[in-house]
């Protein structure tokens, strides 16, 4: 896989991390709530699903339908899981950020 395919945007990283933290319980509403509670990001379900679609096309997450209930108007949940490629992409993003933070600290920038 080309290295560019592993490049993640900030919101993509948040979504992948939220999915990982929710383990087997990651679907639209739970990811949205997790992002709201953890980092106070009030995202729309549409923006979230657009990102999930993009990540799935790139092979970074996979999904399957499960758990239709009356509370959900009889609609199934789209359960999301991070794939091995998704985890690799997250690790790469973390390494890049750590490297850049390290560089900034080497230059004496400690006030951020």
């Amino acid at each position: 896989m080309p290295k560019d395919e592993l490049q993640l945007g900030e919101f993509e990283q948040y979504v992948l991390l939220a999915v990982l933290s929710l383990k087997k319980g990651a679907y639209g509403a739970s990811i949205r709530q997790q992002l709201h509670e953890a980092i106070s990001r009030d995202v729309s379900l549409g923006a979230l699903y657009a990102t999930i679609e993009r990540l799935e096309k790139r092979g970074l997450v996979s999904s399957n339908l499960d758990g239709a209930t009356a509370k959900r108007g009889g609609k199934a949940k789209r359960m999301i899981e991070v794939t091995a490629i998704g985890k690799k992409a997250l690790q790469r993003s973390r390494q890049q950020l750590t490297t850049m933070w390290g560089l900034a600290q080497l230059r004496g920038i400690t006030y951020v």
């Binding site: 679907y27 639209g28 949205r32 379900l45 699903y49 679609e53 239709a68 108007g73 609609k75 199934a76």
Partner: peptide, 28 residues
């Protein structure tokens, strides 16, 4: 209102996305 919102979403979103999203919307 729920039916109106669901209808709008089904109209504008790809169907495989709309169904799951509408379910989340109902739940929340």
């Amino acid at each position: 209102l729920l039916k109106l919102c669901s209808g709008l979403l089904r109209l504008c979103l790809p169907l495989h996305v709309a169904d799951a999203l509408i379910g989340d919307l109902y739940e929340e």
